[in-house]
Design a binder for these strands. Structure first.
Ligand SMILES: [Mn+2]
Ligand SMILES: [Mn+2]
Ligand SMILES: [Zn+2]
Ligand SMILES: [Zn+2]
Lengths: 177, 177
DNA sequence: TCCTAATTGAAAATGAATTTCATTTTCCTT
DNA sequence: AAGGAAAATGAAATTCATTTTCAATTAGGA
């Protein structure tokens, strides 16, 4: 029998902006260096080491911003830094995830993507089946309704996944019938 | 660049029962043979063939009811029918999916599960991280809210995925802090 | 019954994710 | 500034679910 399980999911905590488009954390250099400081502190505290590779990978990851696979991030980095291996990129993203600086996402194409995300944030996704663009939203009413439904079952929600698949504004006209 | 895509998703159509527990289609023999008739008709129409293997596999699948992996269904069948191969079980589940008799589900453990489901039905899932039990629900208010959010983005929803992970009534007491 | 196309199942291939292991690097302690 | 222990690196190997291949078998219409 195969049981569902998640390895210690982090409980959600909401920023509770209603129905709002989430602003992409597009590589604001201020935020990037702030995050890098936090990470450095985290590493030191845990007895882990700051390395040239981690610095490059994290920088590129934060700069990139959204929903990238380890493979794609590796390719990006590899253009400038031929000596950094895929494994290190992969492991760094895992490390970021475990330490709360990133979130793993598994959308319908079943590839693991990562996005920079502080532990307090939560949002859900709209994914265009035509152009692949990913939009983000958070909606308090939705979260409340989820809680309400869960209550009916005596179910205690730790985390949830909500994804809409369809066609974005730009693609909806030439969507298949 | 890796783009998200789904291979021709079927649009949702709701039965629109509000906040209701979905009754498990627990192998009601009447329904089972009805579905098997439909499948037989479908096969004939498409020029596909009715085989002993397909009959056994479909019977067992419908009887089992909910959210089973190809592997688990194979094991179940294999106890009585040593000569039916995994590949055939796998392919039959794929066939059922493509022909609208089953739905593929990918939960957080990243194993493909199948559930018998007529094309018109839709529901979402509550998944217990402790005992692995899966509950089902449908909620019209939720679906409407989703549409409303999508509209804000000019997004046309074709399908969606909504899963709650947490602890069920039975498990919530001994859930980790 | 005959024939053709579909089906079957063992085995191989695929491909993303993860682990191994020998070597290198970090950084704490003398 | 060494020295040394523990961590990190990266190429290669492994894992594991899923999917495909291919030769043999079977279904079902003519
Ligand atoms: Mn996101
Ligand atoms: Mn279900
Ligand atoms: Zn689009
Ligand atoms: Zn439970």
């Amino acid at each position: 029998m195969n049981f569902i399980f998640l390895d210690r999911p982090r409980p959600l905590s909401l920023t509770c902006i209603m129905g709002n488009r989430r602003k992409h954390s597009t590589a604001c250099p201020r935020k990037v260096s702030e995050k890098k400081e936090q990470l450095k502190a985290f590493l030191k505290q845990k007895g882990f080491k700051s390395t040239r590779q981690r610095d490059i990978i994290v920088t590129e990851f934060l700069k990139t911003g959204e929903h990238i696979t380890a493979e794609d991030l590796y390719r990006k980095i590899n253009r400038k830094n031929r000596e950094i291996g895929f494994t290190t990129v992969y492991r760094t993203l895992k490390l970021l995830t475990k330490s709360g600086f990133a979130t793993e996402r598994l959308f319908a194409d079943n590839l693991t993507r990562y996005e920079p995300l502080s532990a307090e944030e939560h949002h859900d996704h709209l994914i265009c089946l035509s152009c692949g663009s990913i939009m983000e939203f958070e909606n308090l009413k939705m979260e409340r309704l989820q809680e309400k439904i869960a209550e009916e079952f005596g179910f205690c929600i730790i985390t949830h996944k909500m994804e809409f698949y369809g066609y974005c504004r730009e693609c909806r006209d030439n969507a298949p019938a």
